[in-house]
């Protein structure tokens, strides 16, 4: 089996009003990787995501899952959507049932599973996002962060291979972001491929294994975050570079060369540890 779990090949899409949202877009999402999709507003991230789940069908080009072309029949779409789950940016758009349990069971019920399996999946999904204790709670009484977690549980209950999250950190405070990151880490450790669209470059730089940068409906760059996010054309497209990378660059101008000493910190904690290690080494006679 190839590394590519989903592949887009020259995909173009034009909305009914004539807006070209994707233009000849080709990209690959690798299995069991944490992929960050970056790009300015209107770059085509959400449209691309809607293609991955079969909500939109390309005007031209093809998509593949496990090297097999997407099938847009009723059965094909049901299978695709059970394997590629999508969590939307606004949880209020996703949650429409009265209780947490009822909403999480919506996906499994659409898969035609029996009641026992649905109950098991719902319980496991809620457990995975640490919401098991709130199964019977009305959805409208949940906090924004809890709603986000219920949305993820709703997708997890379908036991997907890939979870796509559109701006999952938007609207969350720092503590909630940390909690959600921990949930995503657990899911990734369990073998799920995670794809996130984000404007938070620092998060993408520290979290992702693979980054895809989109611009004007196409792929501008792809690779590891430390490789591509420092490229000038990517910096121009995104309007900035990750703060950690900026600090490393500034330190190098001051004579503290972290990269030269073999350190490639991607998070704040790693940066502090690297600075400490390098400065201690330089101080040692």
């Amino acid at each position: 089996m190839s590394d590519a779990i989903i592949r887009l090949e020259n995909v173009s899409y034009r909305y009914p009003d004539g807006t070209a949202a994707l233009t000849d877009c080709s990209l690959t999402i690798n299995r069991n990787k944490r992929t960050a999709v970056l790009g300015a507003n209107g770059a085509g991230k959400t449209t691309m995501f809607l293609h991955l789940n079969g909500i939109l069908q390309p005007s031209s080009g093809r998509l593949f899952r496990d090297d097999i072309p997407f099938e847009y029949s009723r059965t094909g779409l049901r299978k695709l959507r059970s394997k590629v789950g999508m969590v939307f940016q606004n949880p209020d758009s996703q949650l429409f049932s009265a209780s947490v349990q009822e909403d999480v069971s919506f996906g499994p019920m659409n898969l035609g599973l029996d009641t026992t399996t649905i109950r098991r999946r719902v319980a496991e999904a809620l457990g995975a996002v640490a919401m098991a204790g709130l199964a019977d709670k009305p959805v409208h009484n949940l906090s924004y962060g809890q709603k986000k977690r219920v949305c993820i549980a709703g997708v997890l209950a379908m036991e997907p291979e890939v979870i796509i999250l559109d701006e999952p950190m938007a609207g969350l405070d720092a503590a909630m972001q940390e909690e959600l990151t921990a949930v995503l880490e657990r899911l990734h450790a369990g073998g799920i491929t995670i794809v996130i669209a984000t404007h938070d470059l620092d998060f993408a730089y520290g979290w992702a294994d693979q980054a895809l940068v989109m611009q004007s409906g196409g792929l501008l760059a792809h690779g590891t975050p430390e490789d591509i996010l420092l490229r000038p054309e990517v910096g121009n497209a995104l309007g900035t570079i990750p703060q950690i990378a900026e600090i490393i660059h500034s330190l190098s101008l001051l004579g503290i060369d972290l990269r030269g000493n073999g350190y490639l910190p991607r998070t704040r904690n790693e940066l502090v540890a690297a600075i400490a290690a390098v400065t201690t080494r330089e101080d040692t006679p």
């Binding site: 809607l50 789940n53 909500i55 009723r74 779409l77 049901r78 959507r81 059970s82 789950g85 999508m86 939307f88 606004n90 758009s93 996703q94 429409f96 009822e102 069971s105 919506f106 996906g107 019920m109 659409n110 898969l111 035609g112 029996d114 009641t115 709703g154 997708v155 379908m158």
Partner: peptide
């Protein structure tokens, strides 16, 4: 938007109740 999220969770035009 809600309809889109329903489609993404396998909705094919049939609602399924909690009880069989």
């Amino acid at each position: 938007r809600i309809h889109t999220t329903m489609l993404s969770r396998g909705f094919t035009g049939q609602f399924h109740g909690q009880r069989r």
